[in-house]
């Protein structure tokens, strides 16, 4: 059984300008010890998917469809119509967050509380989830700091976040995420705020630690370079949909979806003739408020057809791991959609 299985997840936000469907029926699976990269531009829904999974959506957001299955347990935050159900869900999620699922956030500068010592912030989660003494928790914190490569951890425990550099803070955050030996780590743009040489250190660290502990990792990023070097599999998101998913090699060497191809073309290829101009994707990402039915990429797609505007494409399987949602590969199946719609009416 997979560590994580998300099926048909749809999340909406109620705003003053109407309902925003931030993600529209996405599927993910993740095995133990696997690193899955989720790539997308801002507003593609890559973070919202993870917040839905963690039960950390803002007040106005809710999961309206789909199921989330984590380690054999259904943790879908839907049907919470009574206060009792809501409370039970919250309690369950509090026990899972930081314990079974660890999180690494983007900005190491704002994640840590500036007026609490590093030691206290590191032991907080451990003390909350495990019945051990403060002394033991501190010992554990020291081990963790050794593991993530922070020199002289005993004295560092008493220091405050401002005494740490950006890279060191990110190491602390990774240590906190690993504190309770989680089964799954969600890393939301973990290196975007860091310099290149420090980024290389942190990525190497996440990769080595998770392989050693068999932790599954979901890595959310917009940097194709990062996923190429880190991930086993990749999902490409756009406008709240998964456009294509496959192993890292399948995505980079046999991209199927026009958006994936466009993304790969728009980064500079320094090995070839460098004076060849870049091939950007024209237009801008869609406004989710105005997004209607059909494939969200239609307006920018060079291969768009009439059907793309009206109907969401079906999933085509190329290999067991490589799937793509695009009408180019399922033209002959449009009847299925039409019939399905008629039956619906």
């Amino acid at each position: 059984m997979s560590l994580l299985e998300i099926k048909g997840l749809t999340t909406e936000f109620k705003t003053s300008q109407g309902i925003v469907k931030a993600i529209r029926g996405i599927d993910y699976t993740l095995e133990k010890g696997e690193i899955l990269g989720i790539v997308g531009e801002s507003g593609s829904g890559k973070s919202v998917g993870m917040l839905s999974l963690m039960g950390l959506l803002a007040e106005n957001g809710s999961v309206v469809e789909g199921t989330i299955n984590f380690d054999g347990e259904d943790i879908t935050p839907s049907g919470l119509d009574t206060k009792k159900k809501k409370r039970a869900y919250e309690a369950r999620m509090r026990a899972i967050r930081g314990n079974d699922i660890g999180m690494i956030f983007q900005d190491p500068m704002s994640f840590l509380n500036p007026i609490i010592t590093i030691g206290k912030q590191m032991t907080e989660g451990i003390l909350c989830h495990e019945k051990i003494s403060k002394k033991q928790a501190e010992k554990r914190a020291v081990e963790l700091m050794n593991m993530v490569g922070i020199p002289s951890p005993e004295s560092r425990l008493k220091q405050y976040p401002y005494e740490f550099s950006g890279g060191m803070r990110q190491r602390i955050i990774i240590a906190i995420a690993l504190a309770c030996n989680p089964k799954l780590i969600i890393a939301d743009e973990p290196t975007t705020a860091l310099d290149v040489t420090v980024q290389a250190q942190i990525l190497e660290l996440i990769k080595n630690l998770t392989k050693k502990t068999e932790t599954g990792v979901i890595m959310i990023t917009h940097d194709l370079g990062v996923v190429a070097s880190m991930c086993d599999r990749i999902s490409i998101m756009y406008g709240g949909n998964i456009m294509e998913e496959g192993t890292t090699d399948e995505i980079f060497y046999e991209p199927k979806h026009p958006y994936t191809k466009g993304l790969l073309n728009s980064i500079s290829n320094n090995e070839g003739d460098k004076k060849e101009p870049l091939k950007p994707i024209p237009g801008t990402p869609p406004d989710l408020l105005k997004l209607k039915k059909g494939c969200p990429f239609t307006a920018r797609c060079s291969e768009a057809m009439e059907i793309c505007q009206d109907y969401n494409p079906l999933k085509t399987e190329f290999t067991k791991s490589h799937k793509c949602n695009c009408w180019l590969y399922c033209k002959d199946r449009y009847k299925e959609v039409l019939e399905g719609e008629e039956a619906h009416e």
Binding site: S165, G166, G167, M168, D195, V196, T197, V198, Q199, A200, Q201, L203, E204, D223, L224, G225, V226, A228, S229, T248, D249, F252, Y253, L264, I267, E271
Partner: peptide
């Protein structure tokens, strides 16, 4: 060497120089 290359094969083949410490 630290800059991630958006190409899995090159990325695997490349020996990275990982600098220690920070600026």
């Amino acid at each position: 060497s630290a800059a991630p290359i958006p190409d899995p094969n090159q990325s695997r083949a490349k020996s990275r120089i990982i600098l220690e410490g920070e600026v």
